[in-house]
Simulated assay, not measured.
Amino acid sequence: MTELAGFTRRAAETRLPTRYGDFTAIGYQDPACAIEHMALVYGDITARDPLTRVHSECLTGDVFASTRCECGDQLSAAMKAIVADGAGIVIYLQGHEGRGIGLLAKLKAMRLQEDGLDTVDANVALGLPVDSRDYQAAADILQDLGVPAIRLLSNNPHKVESLSQYGIRISEQVPLLIDVNDDNLPYLKAKRERLDHYLPQLDDIR
Score class of each variant (00 low, 15 high):
Glu114Gly: 10
Ile170Val: 15
Gly72Glu: 01
Glu70Gly: 03
Ser66Pro: 05
Arg133Ser: 03
Leu93Gly: 02
Ile45Glu: 07
Arg68Trp: 08
Ala149His: 02
Ser154Tyr: 10
Tyr166Glu: 05
Gly127Val: 07
Arg192Glu: 10
Leu128Thr: 02
Leu112Tyr: 06
Gly100Asp: 01
Leu145Gly: 01
Ile170His: 08
Thr8Val: 15
His55Leu: 10
Ala5Val: 13
Gly102Lys: 04
Pro129Tyr: 04
His158Met: 14
Pro129Ser: 08
Asp62Gly: 05
Gly167Val: 08
Leu185Lys: 14
Gly21Thr: 13
Val130Pro: 03
Arg194Thr: 06
Thr14Trp: 14
Ala139Trp: 00
Thr24Lys: 03
Asp131Gly: 05
Ala5Thr: 13
Arg9Leu: 13
Arg15Val: 15
Tyr135Arg: 03
Ser132Asn: 05
Ser154Val: 06
Leu152Ala: 09
Ala125Met: 06
Leu75Pro: 06
Ser171Asp: 15
Asn123Thr: 12
Ser164Pro: 07
Leu103Asp: 06
Leu199Asn: 04
Glu13Lys: 14
Tyr187Leu: 08
Ile150Ala: 00
His197Gln: 10
Leu145Lys: 00
Lys159Asp: 09
Ala12Arg: 11
Ala84Arg: 15
Thr46Asp: 15
Gln136Gly: 01
Phe7Asn: 14
Ala39Ser: 13
Gln165Arg: 15
Ala5Asn: 10
Asp196Pro: 02
Leu199Ser: 06
Val90Phe: 11
Thr52Pro: 03
Ile150Tyr: 01
Gly61Lys: 01
Leu93Thr: 02
Gly116Ser: 09
Arg9Tyr: 08
Glu57Tyr: 04
Leu103Val: 09
His37Glu: 05
Tyr135Gly: 04
His197Ile: 13
Thr2His: 09
Asp22Arg: 13
Ala11Asp: 12
Ser162Lys: 12
Tyr20Glu: 15
Ala11Leu: 12
Lys106Gln: 04
